[in-house]
Amino acid sequence: MKAPTLENNRVKLSLIDLSNFKQLQTIAQEKDLIHYSPSDISTPDKLRDYVQVAVDGYYHKSIIPFIIYDKEKQAYAGSTRFGLINWKNKVLHIGWTWIGHKFQGTGLNKNIKFLMLQYAFETLEFEKVEFRIDERNQKSRRAVEKLGAKLEGILRKDTVMKDGFRRSTCCYGILKEEWPTIKEVLSKNIDF
Rank of each mutant, 00 (worst) to 15 (best):
I16Y: 11
G100H: 08
L151N: 04
P38A: 13
L108K: 07
L15E: 05
K71N: 00
K150L: 08
N20Q: 06
E135F: 12
W87V: 07
L84Y: 15
L92F: 09
E7W: 09
S37I: 11
F103N: 03
I174N: 13
S187H: 12
L84M: 07
F103E: 04
Q29M: 15
F131W: 05
G173S: 13
S168P: 01
D70R: 04
I133A: 01
G153S: 01
P38Y: 07
K88H: 13
I67T: 05
A143Y: 10
L175F: 14
W98K: 08
G57P: 03
I64E: 04
I67Y: 05
K88W: 11
G83D: 10
K139M: 08
T106K: 06
Y69P: 08
I27A: 02
K2E: 05
K139R: 09
A120F: 11
Q52M: 09
I174H: 11
Q25I: 15
F66A: 05
F82R: 14
G78V: 00
T181V: 15
F126M: 15
K113A: 04
L115K: 09
W96S: 05
D134Y: 13
E178S: 02
S168H: 01
I67K: 01
Y172N: 02
L108C: 02
N137M: 07
S79G: 03
N137V: 01
K146Q: 13
L15S: 00
L124E: 00
K12F: 01
L108T: 05
